[in-house]
């Protein structure tokens, strides 16, 4: 009987968004009469932070404090069309649509302010704290709130913007099959340490060291949160979760969360993350998306670590104790591969 330590590595290039139909996203922005801005989206925040990030993006692009922006998501009755929350596309696709909508709203805001200040709109700038001023002359200014009130009640003008982001569908070259399926990738590399019990086949993940490249981290705490939680989900997929434990035999599907296994709070894995920021050219303020790829590379890294520990190559998920034990038996015992 022995506990075998193993280490596995995996790297990933993860495409942001889909190519199907160009994967468009839309956003609508409008102001209230007191100079707050509402962003209407049909895009859905399931907890990934898209609502926070699009709020930051809108505030930055309009030039107002983030507190003055409200993002209304997830209602396809009131928000303009969106493809959905998948493929790590939220920040990139929706963020770009928000930038376009915000730019139009900002233009109208500056025009309304210019009329009040009797200057050219091109001479105006925002301070991000709720004021609009003449460039080089901060004293000649008007608040966003005053501007919005004037636009609404005096000028009869909307401060609103429409935005859509669409990457043209890439055709396939009939001769070579070549195409451009995506415009930007996120990247990650992980080293995962495990311990494998060669009598029971149980695998315990003991440490994760990772580097994630996500473009500019628009909200670093949210990025870190998503990477930690996503990697946990990767561990869960790799070792525990299945709706059909004996697939393709469909019997014994779990009927509750006591039998659909996920690691508990007593199995928190120390996870050390390095976030690398290489802003993408076509991304909103350079931000790509951590999304799915925070979980995906965990799976092959664990599979590799198990192989390294006991010499068992599992190519079906999840890597259950039974699969590991059967592999050890088939090999005539654990065959640690050692460190190279």
């Amino acid at each position: 009987m022995a506990i075998h330590k193993g280490r596995g590595f995996a790297a990933i290039n993860y495409p942001i968004g889909m190519n199907l139909g160009g994967d468009p996203a839309q956003a609508l922005v409008h102001s209230t009469p007191d100079g707050k801005f509402k962003v209407a989206l049909a895009a859905i925040d399931l907890g990934q932070g898209m609502k926070s990030v699009t709020r930051q993006i809108a505030a930055e692009a309009i030039g107002v404090p983030v507190e003055d922006v409200y993002v209304d998501t997830a209602d396809s009755d009131t928000g303009p069309h969106d493809m959905g929350s998948f493929a790590s596309r939220g920040t990139h696709r929706v963020g770009n649509a928000v930038i376009r909508a915000s730019a139009e709203a900002r233009k109208q805001m500056l025009e309304a302010a210019a009329e009040e200040l009797e200057v050219n709109a091109t001479d105006l700038d925002t301070d991000g704290r709720g004021n609009i001023h003449v460039k080089g002359a901060p004293g000649r200014s008007i608040t966003v709130a005053e501007t919005a009130t004037a636009a609404q009640f005096k000028q009869g003008r909307t401060l609103a913007g429409r935005g859509i982001f669409l990457i043209p569908l890439s055709d396939t070259d009939p001769d070579t099959g070549e195409m451009t399926p995506v415009t930007c990738f996120a990247h990650a590399a992980l080293v995962i340490d495990v311990e494998v019990d060669d009598e029971t086949g149980e695998v315990e993940v003991t440490e994760i060291n990772s580097a994630y490249e996500v473009g500019r981290a628009l909200n670093p705490r949210l990025v870190e949160q998503q990477l930690i939680g996503g990697a946990w989900m990767g561990v869960s997929h790799a070792l525990y979760e299945t709706t059909e434990p004996y697939y393709p035999d469909r019997s014994h599907a779990p009927v509750d969360f006591n039998r659909y296994l996920m690691p508990g709070p007593g199995q928190i894995v120390p996870h050390h993350i390095a976030v690398l920021e290489r802003p993408a050219e076509d991304a909103p303020f350079g931000g790509k998306g951590p999304g799915e790829m925070c979980a995906n590379p965990v799976l092959p890294a664990i599979a590799n670590a198990v192989y390294n520990a006991v010499g068992v190559r599992c190519d079906r998920l999840p890597i259950t104790p039974e699969k590991v034990l059967r592999g050890i038996r088939a090999n005539g015992g654990a065959q640690p591969k050692g460190r190279r």
């Binding site: 949160q225 930690i228 990697a231 946990w232 996920m262 508990g264 709070p265 928190i268």
Partner: peptide, 19 residues
């Protein structure tokens, strides 16, 4: 703390920020 939340599932965080 871990024991106290052992009857509560979280799908997103991996539990560490909660603890």
């Amino acid at each position: 703390v871990i024991e106290a939340i052992s009857g509560n599932l979280c799908r997103c965080t991996g539990y560490e920020p909660i603890v």
